[in-house]
Amino acid sequence: MATVLYLNELSKKYGSLQAVDRLTLQVEAGSIYGLLGPNGSGKTTTLGMVLDVIRPSGGSFQWFGDSISSETKRRVGALLETPNFYPYLTARANLEVAADTKQADHRHINKMLDMVGLGTRSHTTFKGFSLGMKQRLALAAAMLNDPEVLVLDEPTNGLDPQGIAEVRDLITRIAAQGKTILLASHLLDEVEKVCTHVAVLQAGKLKADGPVEDILSTQDQLLISADELAPVLQLLERLPYIVKFAQEKNYISLTLSEGYTSTDLNRDMFAQGIVLSQLLVRRKSLEAQFLEITQK
């Protein structure tokens, strides 16, 4: 697989603050790469550096195997922090300015406005837009010249639930076109829902990276109880797919190995004449997992 973006020991220092600390990572073509970390962990600084607006204090990066240039920039569509437009220009005029800079075909403007649902508002000035509309206009601008890669920095930040749903839906639709997406977010469930790969940042350092299912384990925890717990415990000893179990007061918590579900457990219990009075699937909270990763 081709590497779209390669970061080698990339660092940024603001005075005495090490905002990004020797960050090395690789984004492969076709992946949806999440940059996950709390506020102030260096996500925006990292994106700013690879987008050529923040000068790195050390290290290097490459786009498509080359150092950054106008050519590589035009293969990437990006929005950093906020939607950046001229408030007094209409949505359409703003996209015309962006199309000039990107050397994109101006005929794409209508198509993009329709894609983000602003086709009927193209003559409204930018300052009259709601935050959700501004964010969608920024996505339209980023998509103007049909880039291979999309870089999005907190694309749902500050949006209401409907706005979040709209923007996420857009991202999923864009990803379905086979584009590589680099997405920074502090929202775990956003990364989990949208991304294929993730890098976890904290205080500018890389804490973990890899496919989402490896990093954010989706192993579920089961809680079961029965009138008589003793036979249940005996059976659990013998079942091969139980990773671990523990008795807690009047219930048992357990983890299944991959590929097994609560259905398998329930069937086996019933086959042994054990009727469970309660079978509860509890997802390990993402927050707990995140804290686990960052405290390693």
């Binding site: 987008l51 920039k73 035009r74 990006a78 950093l80 990107k102 601008a141």
Partner: peptide, 11 residues
């Protein structure tokens, strides 16, 4: 407006 920044990002 941060548009200088955006123009540099855009190419």
């Amino acid at each position: 407006y941060r548009t200088l920044r955006q123009q540099v990002i855009d190419g």
